[in-house]
């Protein structure tokens, strides 16, 4: 399992990459995609929607389950990754390349873990 050092993680298995102080990309971790299995659909919000740190902004579907995805940051969605709408498998193939939303005007963030701490947490859960 792979947890890039430059990202931060939530306990609920999302990652966030800060592009600058007020801009971030958000996705789900390698561990999350593996646990969820083959993803078949992503319900994404719309650009210009607001997101709040700790609140669900999207859900991902496997054949027999659906899981909420929580936002690590508070801000406004500038862009969604439209490629995921046609190819949800990208989340399985390349979880860190397959960002879900790009958030601007970031004003706040949830409790975030470093890659190291996140990896430790997963090891403890197993």
């Amino acid at each position: 399992m792979n947890y890039p050092k430059e990202l931060f993680y939530m306990k609920s298995h999302e990652w966030v990459k800060f592009l600058d102080d007020a801009t971030a990309l958000v996705g789900i971790s390698d561990h999350a995609q593996d646990a969820l299995g083959d993803l078949v659909f992503v319900n994404l919000p719309q650009a210009e929607d607001a997101v709040t740190a700790g609140e669900s902004f999207a859900d991902v579907e496997s054949v027999k389950a659906v899981s909420d995805v929580y936002s690590p940051v508070t801000g406004t969605i500038a862009e969604i990754n439209e490629a995921l709408l046609d190819s949800p498998e990208l989340l399985n193939q390349d979880p860190y390349g397959a960002w879900m939303i790009k958030v601007v005007n970031v004003t706040d963030h949830a409790d975030l873990l470093s890659a190291e701490d996140y990896e430790k947490m997963i090891a403890e859960e197993a």
Binding site: D38, V40, F41
Partner: peptide
């Protein structure tokens, strides 16, 4: 057994 993932994707 069927390819349910393909069916849904």
């Amino acid at each position: 057994r069927l390819d349910e993932v393909g069916a849904a994707r």
